[in-house]
Simulated assay, not measured.
Amino acid sequence: MYSRRFDTPLSHFSPDALQSELNVMLDPASRTWLQVGRDKILDCRTLELAVNTLLLTSAMAQRKLGEEALRYQPEGTHWQVDQAARLLLLLTLRSIVPAVNWPELMLSIYRQFDVSEKIVTVRALDWLAANHELNPIAVETVNTSNLDLFSALALKNAYPVKFLNECTFLKLIQKAVLLDLNLEQIEGLPLRQSPELTKLCMDLVRERLHAEQDIPPSIWLGMRYRYLSDQGKDLYLGNVFSESEQHQYFTLLGLVNNGAQECPADFWQQLAKSAFSMAPHIRPLADELLSEARFSRTSSCFNTGHFRTS
C-alpha cells in the first residue's frame, strides 16, 4: 500500500496506559514529578484551580522530562516523552470536566499555551475530542502563521479529514499547497475527494502554469480524475508521462488512490509501453493500475479518447 487509507481511528491511549508507557522511560524522580502533577489536577476543588495546575505543570514538562522519543508509538504517530506527558495531563483534566464544558474550556487552555504546547494539542485532537467539538481549535490552527503548528494539524493527523467541514478542509489543503507541504502526508485525503477539492487543486496548477512557476508535485493527490474537465484530464494524464519522476509518482499515486476507471484507452496503451522504463519506486504504481484495469474489464476503463503529452 503506497498511501495509507484512512479507514479506522488511530489507537487511543487511556491516561493510565499512557502513564504506563511513560513510566518505562522515566527515572524515579521524573515519574514521581509527573504523578504528583497529575494527582494535583485530580484533587483540585474547582476547575479553575485544575486548569491553573495543568498550565503550570505542562510548562515545566520539557525541562523536567526531556525530549526522548517514546518507545511505544500508536499507529501513525511520533511522540516525545515531554509531549506525551503534556497529552497525559490534558487527558487527566478531561476526565474531571463535564462533557458540555470541555470544548470551551479546551479552547481557553489552547489560547494560553505556548507554540510547543499548541502543537501537542492539535496533534492530539483525535484523542481529546469525541466528535467535532474541538473544531474551533482546528480552525484557529488553519489560520496560524506558524508553519510547525499548521503542519502539526495538517500532516499525519486524523482529525481534519474526520471532522473539518468542507470549507475549512479546502482552506487547509490550499494552504498546504501554498506552503509546499507534501499532500501525501494528509491523513485520509482520498476520503475527502470532491469536485470542489479537485477544482481547487487544478485551479492552483493553472495559476502556477500561468505564472511560469513550478507545480507542487503532490498537488495531483488532491484531484479525482473523473471530476476534471476534459482539458484538466489532458493536463493530468500528460503529467503521468512527464520527465519529472515526482510528477509521474504523484499522478499515478493519485489514480491508485482516487480511481482511474474513466481514463481513455490510449492512456492504458501508453502506460503499458512506458511502465518498463519507469523508475523502480514508480513502476509498482503503474503495474497496480494496469493489473486493476485488466481484471476489471469494465467499459469505463477503455473509453475512446485522446490526451496530449506535451
Rank of each mutant, 00 (worst) to 15 (best):
R5P: 00
D7V: 13
H12G: 12
H12M: 14
S14V: 00
S14E: 04
S20H: 15
V24Q: 05
L26P: 00
A29I: 10
V36D: 08
D39A: 15
I41R: 02
R45V: 09
S58I: 01
Q62I: 12
E67C: 07
Q73D: 12
G76R: 06
W79E: 10
Q80I: 14
L87K: 03
L90D: 00
S95W: 03
I96G: 12
I96Q: 12
P98A: 13
W102S: 07
W102F: 03
P103C: 09
M106F: 15
L107N: 05
V115F: 02
S116L: 11
S116W: 12
S116P: 08
N131H: 12
E133N: 13
V139H: 06
E140K: 15
V142F: 02
N143K: 09
S145G: 13
D148F: 06
L153K: 03
A154N: 07
A158I: 02
F163V: 01
L164Q: 02
L179Q: 10
D180V: 10
D180T: 09
N182V: 04
L183A: 01
R192S: 09
L209R: 12
E212F: 08
P216R: 01
S218W: 02
Y225E: 08
D230N: 11
Q231N: 13
Q231K: 15
L235A: 13
L237Q: 01
L237I: 06
F241V: 04
S242A: 14
Q246Y: 11
T251Y: 03
L253D: 06
V256H: 07
F267R: 03
W268L: 05
A272V: 04
S274N: 11
M278A: 07
H281Y: 11
P284C: 11
L285A: 01
A286H: 05
A286Y: 01
L290C: 12
H306T: 15
T309L: 11
